[in-house]
């Protein structure tokens, strides 16, 4: 789960990038193979020195294979959820897009262990508590969604996704952020589940953090002039941007 979290956090910004969709479908398969080869070597090295579990660097080949294989599945799942690959496309083009998107995702797998230090980040103890958590959630949400908010992608995706896909995105945002914070065994997880407070029930905290991510996504889109109302296309854009924002909020909460 820690590897999946790393993959989502590092992979999402590129999965939300039009150029990845275009180049995945236009690059020659030989070039994609070459890129995958280089990425695998990087994965092997990162799995040897960092890995996706504390102290687990003794089987770098096995971990690199697992990270690489699962990142294909994860990238496919996320691209399918966002409607960027489907079964009407030629398999060659769909495969190219998934393979290209899986590159940062697989690196996220291999770096999973380094994403949230054990015991939380520096000054984490001063931010502990309900308000501190929500502040960290907002900070993480801004960091991950700020580089997507001013781009065309949220608008493009919002116009193309139907109600079912949008509902699925909300559901996946909630489930993944819940799993990342409470089941990925990142550093900081131990302390947070022992801290008392209304926001520390896993379900309540996940819902509150999603609300924070949703608000951050809405405010960023409004600041950039992308939305003018909380309905229809505007609401769809916020839901689309809330996905990376909620992943950022999960990472932010792990650091406190």
């Amino acid at each position: 789960m820690r590897g999946v979290a790393g993959g989502v956090i590092l992979g999402l910004p590129l999965i939300y990038t039009q150029e990845v969709w275009v180049h995945g479908a236009t690059l020659a398969p030989t070039i994609i193979l070459l890129l995958l080869g280089i990425t695998f070597v990087l994965n092997l090295a990162l799995s040897h020195y960092v890995g996706f579990e504390p102290g687990r660097t003794h089987r770098p080949l096995e971990d690199a294979l697992v990270g690489f294989g699962l990142s294909f599945l994860l990238a496919f799942g996320l691209l399918f959820l966002l409607g960027r690959v489907d079964f009407t496309m030629t398999p060659e083009n769909a495969l190219g897009i998934v393979a290209l998107a899986s590159i940062p995702t697989s690196l996220g797998f291999a770096l999973g262990n380094a994403l949230a230090p054990k015991g939380g980040g520096k000054g984490a103890e001063e931010m502990a508590g309900g308000a501190g958590d929500l502040l960290a959630a907002a900070g993480g949400a801004v960091i991950l969604s700020l580089n997507i908010a001013p781009t065309e992608e949220p608008i493009l995706l919002a116009y193309q996704l139907d109600f079912v896909r949008l509902a699925a995105i909300v559901l996946v945002s909630l489930i993944l952020s819940f799993l990342i914070v409470f089941h990925a065994e990142f550093g900081g997880k131990q302390g947070r589940s022992e801290t008392p407070g209304a926001a520390h029930g896993p379900v309540v905290e996940t819902l509150l953090a999603y609300l924070v991510a949703f608000t951050v996504a809405g405010l960023l889109l409004a600041f950039f002039g992308e939305i003018d109302a909380l309905e229809g296309a505007g609401l769809a854009e916020i839901i689309v941007l809330s996905f990376p924002a909620s992943m950022g909020s999960a990472l932010g909460r792990l650091l406190v």
Binding site: P29, I32, L33, L36, L65, V66, G67, F68, G69, L70, F72, L73, P91, L95, A99
Partner: peptide, 14 residues
């Protein structure tokens, strides 16, 4: 499962 996915993707790309 990971090895199976990697092999399938590499064979397809090749």
């Amino acid at each position: 499962a990971s090895v199976a996915v990697i092999v399938a993707i590499l064979i397809s790309l090749a």
